[in-house]
Design a protein around this nucleic acid. Sequence first.
DNA 1: TTAACAGGTCAACGATGTTGTCATAAGGTG
DNA 2: CACCTTATGACAACATCGTTGACCTGTTAA
Lengths: 239, 239
Amino acid sequence: MSERVVPAADRRRRRPTKAGVVLSEELIVETALRLIEEHGADALSVRRLGRALGADPSSLYRYFRHTDDLLLAVADELIGRTLRTWCPTGDWRADLRDLGLRMHAGALAQPRAAVLSSYRVTGRVHEIQAVEAILGVVRGAGFPDPEAVRIYHAFVDQCLAFGALDSASIAMPKTARAADADVWRATYARLPAATHPHIAATARHLVADMPRSSYPAALDLLLSAAAARLAEIRAGEEG
Amino acid sequence: MSERVVPAADRRRRRPTKAGVVLSEELIVETALRLIEEHGADALSVRRLGRALGADPSSLYRYFRHTDDLLLAVADELIGRTLRTWCPTGDWRADLRDLGLRMHAGALAQPRAAVLSSYRVTGRVHEIQAVEAILGVVRGAGFPDPEAVRIYHAFVDQCLAFGALDSASIAMPKTARAADADVWRATYARLPAATHPHIAATARHLVADMPRSSYPAALDLLLSAAAARLAEIRAGEEG
DNA sequence: TTAACAGGTCAACGATGTTGTCATAAGGTG
DNA sequence: CACCTTATGACAACATCGTTGACCTGTTAA
């Protein structure tokens, strides 16, 4: 085993499946994405994917070494799609905010791929494009290189981390989600001020705020910290 | 089924396992934590946990409805342990920073529990303690209630999200991790400036920065944004 | 035309979470 | 002390999962 996978470029023989399908890395990734869109993230398994393609599950191992590799390819395709819908305006802060929200939404649709791509480096085309684009925005804003990289890193990781998190929440059966939201009403909002003064004082806001994603707020905090830092840097240069 | 689980308080009959162990929610959670500490997060499965306890796996379903419930209990225990090592000083920013780093480190040790507890509400004792404590710090700093909740929410979620992420990275076999780190050297650092100017310009910093966690940086950005906001609020009150 | 071999298929392995059923010992009651 | 109820542990089974080794066949290059 271990070297069953042939690099995409070297593939010659296009032998059709029993069901008549001609496999390819592209087709597999597309089908995987379709599967997830239609039936949720948990619907993606090697076996189901094989079934959806009309091929034996083990065939996929001729294209991907293991599931992780497949998920990384899916993630990269997703990055590409997100990037294509993004039109930077030249205002760094607005551009980053927009991209962050888009990538977060994209990750929402792809929890497992999002988790993977957040701590793995694919080195694939779309990932590289994204790195180049974001670094361009940050450097264009005026951050010196070491700080630009730090901000790039925090920005990307924050986006992917929240994406993975929020998508897990969305994937819950909605009865369970409702039950969770209710804990804030039924448990937290009922705590007596005597023992839990801070929770009691803010109960109303907790009930309203906690069931929603905090990503937009976290993103804005990150961006405004970056903006403040940029102002410092500019002041330092002038003075 | 569905109602095989008896609330901890109502338990009477302490019938020992074949192996002579007397089960309890407490013992199960402790054993789960030990299992993870000793053999990594992936070592935690119902079956392995049963084996470690000297009990049939299915017995655990008398104590937890499903694996998620067990993980939530583990997460809550972990929150408790973390909280106990934290001694707030009164300086809100330093205290939050310290707690953030501690909780992140705790989550690192418990990836699966961390993910779960980040998007679920347990309503268990330690979680409540943590909410009360953090809200106390934020409100004590002078944030008005709605904003205090927003900052609390972003702070906690970011901490757990990065914790889950970074722990996934740590859990990788170290050969794979080295390979990933090498992508920055072998792929990114080799991209020509002609096609990828920003990556080329910052390659040195990318290689150094990307394999590390960006959580401390992200945390500092969040805290400094919060500090700036607080300054604004104070100025507004005075003016 | 043929021979090599890429690539599809089959069957199997061991692992997972979960549940329906059964057996038994604990503990309240008389 | 004995009895009955029932809480709780054990067993066996199910469906699912990723993965691999061996096999077989159609494509393609010579």
